[in-house]
Design a protein around this nucleic acid. Structure first.
Length: 950
RNA sequence: GCACCUUUAGCUCAGUGGUAGAGCGUUCCGUUCACAUCGGAAAGGCCGUAGGUUCGAUCCCUACAAGGUGCACCA
């Protein structure tokens, strides 16, 4: 700061953002000032300064950033730079989100398009590898974009929602909630996506309006209406309102036989308020397995619930002649049949209703009853520690109460405040949150089931992993012959399968491979050994069932001659091994090896039959269960986890739940999982001196209003539960960025404006300002390229103002104090007023920023700089500077410098690049020289903010 | 069905209990001397409609209309 002044580098005439921005970026990044620790180290921030922190809402690694992200980055960077300049300990923590379903579905689509394969073709490990590669590429693109916007995030603290540290947080949170009884597994009706084969949470549903014919059918003495006759095969309850005078002759529980789709049905009358007397005939039949409301009614009256449609949208046997049909195809056929039976009363065309679709892919959702994991939002639990006003430590509360209290107590303020109502409304309608997903990309549910007794071990320690692998496809498999102890070599396909298995096992730290000594297993085991580097030993006890005279026959011949699976002890031919004997042989060998090698990660390569009967023992199945269980395909890998002995039955073999957690489960932990929880947290509080202690709760959560529920509410829930506090003091919701006509930007409309294109064409400063000015909180912004261009002009204006001031005041910077003889004390009266006016602008700008009115703050400084400073003050100064009154000229020069200095500081959070570029061109003044404003820092980024009011 | 938001100049939006402002656009004028990515000037609005409160309303209240969003329903 006090080094001798360098001659200012000549300003090039028009401001060139493309040339300047990379240089400035490098300067900032090299300085390390985005990291608050560096700021303290270098004396920019006082060690005991107040903290100000924001965690960046992590963008999904599904592709690239859009204008909405750009707006988010601009807003947060303004807040961060402002607070950093005010000398606060300022942290902006970046990261990305694995976005489970969204990312997986993008990769699945690509895979299908480029390789015509499904994820199942690749297997879990290989598929996940592909997703990771894709996510990494997206991540790198995103980081590049975030940097290009000038976002002063602290990359040294970057986090990913699916990395190891976050996994520890997820497992800990899960375990704590499970232990508190808030996470449970149950059969409940969920939103099922038949295409993606997974559940979807209530919030991910997007209702799409659809017009369909509405059919009325005769159902005994009643008329019922429906859009979906194909779901009504099992409808045997008829529901009516208890007060409906039309049906008062019918009593609750009364039964009557009615003619229905596939013949007569015994129907039962149910009286329930749920029936709307004014809708249609006021009578409805219910399909509890495929409708949330119907399910509720069924539960209330303890009615039978029968599944009609399977997970793929195919009708089940209950549909009689329609079984096996897809529901979409079945509708006209069912309709036709009902018409033929004379049960169709009438058709009303153009009935408008909403259809639930998956917002991540658009497929129509089918309610299904499934065994899933849920978070209970209503259950009371004892909260050990709470700082939330109105909820005492040690008191009974519920997650819903935490969410409500956190906001209505004022602990969290939502801006604009009208969203508080929306928030409460959402809480009131909140049901238990289904957190399990049948997809692969995500945090695996940290629950292990004891294979023997099904006991649930939560967040257990896996001591070692054992894998059962069947050999690859053989010539015998192709010919469909019973191989037994005879052998045939692997086919090409079989060798490829074995390699895939090797790939899958490569990263599992395999220490030993135990294989059947038959050639097909030997061959498979050796391929796997090559991939994993593990030693192979052979054990004849893992051979296939000995089939005696049956060996070499085709399956059909075998079946015909011996009925080999008729029962457990069947030994149709004297020399054939029974299944019981096989089970004994294989299980004994397995137990023996596990006793010796239990601490190692082991692969066992064996045969289809051998694995089947081994699993019968391990999983404690009956003969019939084992017989129908699907066993490994060729070279498929089955994983068993060795844990501490089950507390219930003493068995040590477990299987981890194959599902993953809803992406919002990990996102909900974001503010504290990024700051060191749970490692830096003990006894109800963060350890002293850690990031968690310093930066949590964060100052503000800034995001689009469209994810208020998804995310904001869940963070409040999770933080309340895990820390007994709030994740942030303020929520600031910005609007969505739309096109000039107010439409959503979408690829299909072709109206997407890419932030990177804008920064390249007009500069990051212009792109940022265009998203700030005129964007009042919570209201959508209409963006057009013209707007961005307009702010590029402003950047240039600021550049030229600076050129003028520096050029006309050049001598001030070179002359010594004494020569000039002027100081702050004896300015002309007019100049004192100008400086006061500038200071007033500084307080107005500060106040607007403090109130989250960045639009007004930006507008204020924009107008001051252009229309007051440039158009009036500078224009008036021209005559003064050229005038004969030297004292007045000198005073004005000082004043122009001062106004420029303040303006640059005020502008910096909004347009960091051009202001920093100018700052770098400013001469470094010797201390006190000519009373000029102090260039108090090499970088404007950490210079002092000019106003400290408010 | 229930909420919420919006309605101000051609467009995009600020705004205040004392009858209105910006940017862009339009028109005209201007270029040696920071900037044509510029400067100067002008035109353009009964502040959605109807009531009410008030000395006075664009601003507060009520109703309505149009547009939008969320939630619920959807047999």
């Amino acid at each position: 700061m006090t080094e001798p002044s360098k001659a200012p580098e000549p300003f090039l005439k028009p401001y060139n953002s493309a040339e300047n921005e990379p240089k400035i970026l490098e300067l900032w990044e090299k300085s390390g000032f985005a990291n608050p620790d560096v700021c303290i180290e270098k004396g920019v921030t006082a060690p005991d300064a107040e903290s100000y922190s924001i965690v960046l809402p992590p963008p999904n690694v599904t592709g690239t950033l859009h204008m909405g992200h750009a707006a988010m980055l601009a807003i947060q960077d303004i807040l961060i730079r402002y607070h950093r300049m005010r000398g606060e300990k300022t942290l902006w923590l970046p990261g990305t989100d694995h976005a489970a379903i969204a990312t997986q579905s993008v990769v699945e689509k690509n895979l299908l398009k480029t390789e015509k394969k499904s994820r199942h073709d690749l297997g879990r490990e290989e598929f996940l590898k592909r997703v990771e590669e894709f996510a990494q590429a997206s991540h790198d693109t995103i980081v590049g974009q975030v940097r290009a916007m000038g976002a002063s995030v602290d990359w040294t603290r970057e986090a990913y929602t699916l990395d190891e540290a976050r996994n520890v947080a997820v497992r800990t949170a899960f375990k704590n909630m499970y232990d508190a009884g808030l996470i449970y597994r149950g059969n409940r009706i969920v939103n099922w996506d038949p295409k993606m084969q997974t559940t979807v949470s209530d919030d991910e549903i997007e209702y799409v309006e659809q017009k369909d014919p509405f059919y009325y059918f005769k159902y005994g003495p009643f008329t019922i209406g429906t859009v979906r006759p194909e779901t009504k095969f099992g409808d045997k309850y008829i529901v009516m309102h208890p007060d409906d005078a039309r049906y008062k002759e019918y009593k609750h529980g009364q039964q009557l036989e009615v003619e229905w789709i596939n013949g007569p049905i015994l129907a039962t009358i149910i009286k329930d308020q749920a029936a709307d007397m004014s809708f249609g005939s006021g009578v409805m039949t219910i399909t509890p397995a495929h409708s949330g409301i119907d399910f509720e009614i069924a539960q209330k009256h303890k009615l039978d619930v029968e599944q009609i449609i399977n997970e793929r949208g195919i009708l089940l046997p209950i549909a009689g002649e329609f079984a096996g049909q897809h529901i979409k195809k079945a509708r006209p056929m069912v309709l036709e049949k009902l018409r033929a039976k004379g049960l169709l009363v009438k058709i009303e065309e153009g009935y408008v209703h909403n259809v639930a679709t998956n917002s991540r892919g658009g497929e129509t959702l089918e309610p299904q009853i499934k065994l899933q994991w849920f978070v209970d939002v209503n259950k009371k639990f004892t909260i050990p520690h709470s700082e939330i006003p109105g909820i005492a430590s040690g008191s009974k509360t519920s997650l819903k109460e935490i969410m409500r209290r956190a906001v209505d107590s004022g602990a969290i303020k939502i801006a604009p405040d009208r969203f508080e109502k929306v928030y409460y409304n959402w809480i009131d309608n909140l049901r238990d949150w289904c957190i399990s997903r049948q997809i692969w990309y995500g945090h695996r549910i940290p629950v292990w089931y004891c294979l023997n007794c099904k006991y649930e071990a939560v967040d257990a320690d896996v001591k070692s992993k054992w894998f059962l692998v069947r050999h690859g496809e053989t010539e015998g498999n192709v010919k469909r012959i019973t191989q037994g102890h005879q052998d045939t070599p692997l086919t090409e396909q079989g060798i490829a399968q074995a390699r895939t298995a090797g790939e899958q096992l490569k990263n599992q730290n395999i220490e030993l491979i135990i294989s059947s000594d038959l050639g097909r297993c030997k061959q498979t085991a050796e391929i796997i050994a090559k991939a994993t580097g593990a030693e192979v030993v052979f054990d004849a006890a893992f051979r296939e069932r000995f089939m005696g005279d049956g060996e070499g026959l085709t399956y059909e011949e075998q079946e015909e001659r011996f009925s080999p699976f008729k029962d457990y002890d069947d030994r149709t031919e004297g020399n054939m091994e029974t299944t019981r004997e096989l089970e004994e042989r294989v299980s004994e060998a397995f137990a023996k090896h596990k006793k010796i090698h239990g601490h190692k990660n082991v692969v066992i390569v064996s045969h289809g039959g051998a694995i089947r009967w081994l699993l019968k023992r391990i999983k404690n199945l009956t003969f019939d269960e084992a017989r129908i269980t699907k066993v490994a395909g060729n070279a498929s890998v089955q994983s068993l986890d060795v844990l501490n002995a089950c507390t219930k039955c003493g068995n040590d073999l477990f299987e981890q739940d194959s599902d993953t957690l809803d992406t919002w489960f990990s996102s909900g932990l974001w503010t504290f999982s990024t700051l060191g929880w749970p490692l830096d947290y003990a006894q109800g509080k963060p350890k002293t001196g850690t990031d968690l202690a310093t930066y949590h709760p964060t100052a503000v959560l800034e995001t689009g209003y469209d994810i208020l529920f998804f995310w904001v509410a869940r963070m409040i829930l999770m933080t309340g539960f895990c820390l007994g506090t709030v994740p942030f003091r303020n929520v600031y919701l910005h609007g969505l960025v739309r096109d000039a006509k107010g439409r959503k930007m979408s690829k299909s409309l072709g109206n997407v404006i890419d932030p990177l294109t804008m920064t390249e064409k007009y500069g990051a400063d212009a792109a940022r300002l265009s998203l700030i000015v005129g964007a009042s909180p919570g209201n959508d912004v209409k963006l057009s390229e013209d707007r961005v261009r307009g702010y590029k002009h402003f950047a240039n204006k600021v550049w030229n103002i600076s050129r003028f001031v520096l050029e006309s005041c050049a001598d001030l910077h070179t002359k010594a104090d004494a020569e000039i003889g002027h100081g702050v004390s004896n300015l002309e009266e007019a100049d004192n007023q100008l400086i006061a006016e500038t200071q007033e602008i500084a307080s107005v700008v500060s106040e607007h920023i403090d109130n989250f009115r960045l639009d007004l703050a930006a507008d204020t400084i924009y107008h001051f700089v252009w229309h007051r400073f440039a158009d009036e003050i500078i224009e008036d100064s021209k005559t003064i500077l050229k005038g004969a009154d030297e004292a007045a000229a000198l005073s004005r020069r000082y004043t122009l410098n001062a106004i420029l200095d303040t303006s640059l500081r005020l502008l910096h959070p909004f347009m960091p690049f051009v202001t920093e570029a100018i700052w770098q061109n400013l001469p470094a003044h010797a201390g006190g020289q000519a009373g000029l404003p102090q260039k108090d820092s090499e970088l404007l980024m950490v210079a002092k903010w000019p106003s400290y009011n408010s």
